[in-house]
Design a binder for these strands. Sequence first.
DNA 1: AGCTAATCATAACACTGTTATGTAAGTCAA
DNA 2: TTGACTTACATAACAGTGTTATGATTAGCT
Lengths: 198, 198
Amino acid sequence: MSDAKNIILQAASELFLEGGTSALSVRAISKRAGVSTIGIYSHFKGKQGILDELYIEGFEKVFLAMDILDINAPARDVILNGVKGYLTVADQYEAHYRLIFGESDAGYSPSEDARAIAKKAFKKLIDVSSLILPEDTKPTEKRRIALEIWAFIHGYVSLKHHAISTFISPSQWNRLALSALATHIDAIIAKYAVHILK
Amino acid sequence: MSDAKNIILQAASELFLEGGTSALSVRAISKRAGVSTIGIYSHFKGKQGILDELYIEGFEKVFLAMDILDINAPARDVILNGVKGYLTVADQYEAHYRLIFGESDAGYSPSEDARAIAKKAFKKLIDVSSLILPEDTKPTEKRRIALEIWAFIHGYVSLKHHAISTFISPSQWNRLALSALATHIDAIIAKYAVHILK
DNA sequence: AGCTAATCATAACACTGTTATGTAAGTCAA
DNA sequence: TTGACTTACATAACAGTGTTATGATTAGCT
């Protein structure tokens, strides 16, 4: 990657972290990067290209957050730890998170490359959440369970961002999300245990 | 409400349903309504005012969707029916839903009046979801459970809107959401049953 | 060296929400 | 009816947005 490209991306990332999408205008980026506005078009595919990079950056953070250190811990704890990491990233990189879930720029839609990273992250989630399932569980079933967990936890993050939700503090939100998910995971485990016993 | 005000709002609502926020420019509204752009500012508080009206419109749809017809049915079914209505509204008025959850216009934030309607809808959700809880459950506990249900189901709707989620059809999404929620509700009921038995 | 392709700057285009200015219409009291 | 005052509307402009056409400059390669 060339110098100018790096400088532009750095400027964009800074502005994005500071003020979200509203602070991310082509002119603001070029001004901070010390280049002309045309630089965003010669090095990236316009603003879409910049947003794509930030989208990928966001999903990479999510991907790393799900990294599991203690592979020997009980499956239930491994998942909850992964989710804890997910929630931390969602807090720390809120602008990225909002971009990923279309909460910041209605006009933006991710490119093929960006979608590929997103799918990679989802596959990792499937791997992690499958730990509570029997090994011979069908792929579609594994995906279904991963989706349940993702929907649940993302629902909490998204509601936290909602304007109505001021009566609950951010840290309390994360605790609520984790305890609710624990309940749900236990329910899933119990269901499969019964299934095995039969 | 005056004539011009109604005409403007009608035009805005139509454009919104047709093309979402991106189709909702002040000039487009005024053009369709047959008035000058200044009309949006004399009858509403600019674009914010228009979005506020649509925000309220959206939450009223959600509110109505949770109306329960069969009050004598089992609590579990009453909730699932209410959620089914919620999902239908989310599909039918996708633009409104996205606006409500900040997925369409990053600049918009609802007024006090709009927030009030949102709180009213949430209170209704608390009432409905409390049906599976013992009558003497504390208000904060009731709220916590309502939040669990809302987060779960909204998480599914939000993921459905996500770009990565093309591998699942819309109707399938709703089925997945409902069955996952059923699992979760049963888990909650079981938990409270144990609590009572002790 | 000479040619080609990429990089950059200026300025402009078509859009956005908003507002200052001016005009016309309606309202109400003397 | 007349005069004063408020409201409704229109035109045009302002400051911002993403994008691009036109040139100029630079870099890489034959």
